[in-house]
Write a protein that binds this DNA or RNA. Sequence first.
DNA 1: ATGGTAGTAGAACTA
Length: 264
Amino acid sequence: MIDVRIATWNVNSIRSRIDRVEAWLARSDVDVLAMQETKARDAQFPYARLHDLGYEVAHHGLNQWNGVAILSRVGLDDVRVGFDGDPGWGEPLAAEARSIGATCGGIRMWSVYVPNGRAIGDPHMAYKLDWLARLREQASAWAADGTPVALCGDWNIAPQDDDVWSMEYYLDKSHVSPPERAAFNAFLDAGFVDVVRPHAPGPGVYTYWDYQRLAFQKRRGMRIDFVLGSPSFAARVAGAAIDREERKGAGASDHAPVVVELTD
DNA sequence: ATGGTAGTAGAACTA
């Protein structure tokens, strides 16, 4: 085992964000990055520029939507695209590019982009809940033998009232509904731990701010990006932080990177 | 005020 810095970041298009991603990797010094919403097919992904920074890269992208990747400079083995039981979407029903796993520095990393339920009662909401239930089943199995597992990504759920800038605003909207929170809490009940919250407690601590209505400037955000660690992973967490500085300025993603430091 | 921004696209869809 080695000391490792891992991170998760919804980049909202790798092709439009590659300059900022490169600069952030250089100054953040992370060893492993789980990326979501690359919005690119594999053939469009800028592998070479990330290789030049010293990272091995596994990407899964089928079209202009979704897309997930894992970057690592501490090994990238046993890459797995998707998980058993992914309910899929569309006609014909097919798994979207929302999950990829790899073993990096002894950690089983997963980059997950949980479906956006859009609205209460929307068919996308049922898909989201089903997708999460299936992922939880698999995640429990991955961690059952004591393997350190990290489920990293954009969960599109704000599990606690303090995780949104206004519960009044989100009343009866997606991301805060009881079924979504139950789907998230099922991971905690299964033994996974939100390893960032103790090091970045709320209220007022978020990972996502809408591009519209000056949400970032008005501090109107949501905490929806999480690293959920299995017990053996959580035991090694020495620190964590949300890099809200990266949300600033022209050309920022609407999500901030979330960094977790592990010790031996 | 049923808006606003940003991404993929090259019109509308997604978030």
